[in-house]
Amino acid sequence: MQQTNEPLRIVLSGGGTGGHIYPALALCQRLKETNTSVEFLYIGSERGLEQRIVSEAGIPFKSVEIQGIKRSLSFENVRTIYLMYTAIRQAKKYLREFNPDVVIGTGGYVCAPVLYAATRLNIPTIIHEQNSVAGLTNKFLARYVDRIAITFERVRNDFTKYNKKIRLVGNPRAQEVYQLVDKNQLNINNLEAINRVKQVLIVGGSRGAEPINEAALKQYELWKDKPYEVTVVTGRGQFETLNEKYKEIIPHNVHLKEYISNMPEQLMQTDLIVTRSGATTLTELTALGIPSILIPSPYVTNNHQEKNARDLVDKQASRMILERDLTSETLVKEVDHLMGHTEQRQMMGKNAFEMGIRDAADRFIDLIDELVNNI
């Protein structure tokens, strides 16, 4: 990023889920490391997670009122149109006051009024699509913005009319995660460490995934006497109930945890992970080269988690169990197979690592530089 006497001013927008927020924060952190003169403003919704997360990160936050459009005929869509109009007006006010050099949207319906307002004010704009299938908001914004940053090649198919705008940059979270770990441990899955018990991590996200917890624990006796340890991260909403139910009866090689705060470090001690296939999760797995069994959530827009997972499965970097096929038996059978075939598991980790884009934040910064200085 070129240094000037004037600070670089960047507006970020994204919300609804952590998958839209954390890439933005990772980009902010890298920009602070590479540019001593940079200022941020985050525009989001008070109803999403972003206000708390962004404020805790120390980034100025402003909000607009907006809601997603219903896919069926509904009177609420009339209100959505009204809120969109008023949110665009409010966003224009914020943008005129802050006078940014570039506006970046990382997903979620709150981006629609903010990025659209920026294009009307002739401010350079970028949208970032983290998934293998484009979200509705990014599809809407694609025709207006200057650049479309993508994480997976597959998503180009959703932006065929705008191919000249597309840049493959990856997910800034990958670079952040890679920088957090001890590089000496990166070959942990390629070494048969002496006196180290193999580790399987089962996690459904910070709030947990009930179907995954049930499959992991309902027939807990299936894990007994396995030559590896199993850690089930239940999520904050389910830990107390499950711990009370199972703590006295599960095998000694099975451990329950509520939440893991240092996930990158935990992943480096993991031989196999069973998890969902959200964009941020896959970014972390490919950044570090962790073999995985993916169980896509079927409750997401456009079934994008299954399409995310298929990107890894097609490259033999992961195995997949659809939730409709998930039982205790299928889960244990799949875990047993991979834990018993070390070479296959190691190859999966190697293939995952080759998919990772570990300089994603720097690529994004180059894209900002290109846009700000040349548009």
Rank of each mutant, 00 (worst) to 15 (best):
P7D: 07
L8K: 09
G14W: 00
G14Q: 03
G15P: 04
G19C: 03
A26P: 03
E33Q: 13
F40N: 04
I43L: 06
E46M: 08
I53E: 01
V54W: 00
A57G: 01
I59S: 01
S63I: 04
V64E: 02
Q67I: 07
G68L: 02
L73E: 11
R79E: 12
Y85C: 13
R89F: 15
Q90Y: 12
Q90W: 12
Q90V: 10
K93E: 12
Y94C: 07
R96M: 14
I104H: 02
V110K: 01
P113M: 10
V114N: 02
L115T: 10
Y116A: 11
A118G: 05
I127Q: 09
N138T: 12
K139R: 15
A142F: 05
R147N: 02
A149S: 10
E153P: 02
K165I: 02
N171V: 02
Y178W: 11
K183F: 06
N184V: 12
N184I: 09
L186V: 07
N189D: 11
Q199S: 11
V200Y: 03
V203H: 01
E214L: 10
K224M: 13
P227A: 09
E229C: 14
V230E: 08
V232T: 08
R236M: 15
F239T: 04
E248K: 14
I250G: 04
N253R: 06
V254L: 08
H255Y: 13
E258G: 06
N262F: 09
L267K: 00
M268P: 01
V274D: 00
V274K: 02
T280H: 03
T281N: 07
P298H: 04
K307Y: 09
K307A: 08
D314Y: 06
A317P: 05
L322V: 14
D325C: 13
L331D: 14
E334P: 13
M339I: 13
E343N: 15
M348R: 04
R358D: 07
D362R: 08
N374D: 14
I375W: 13
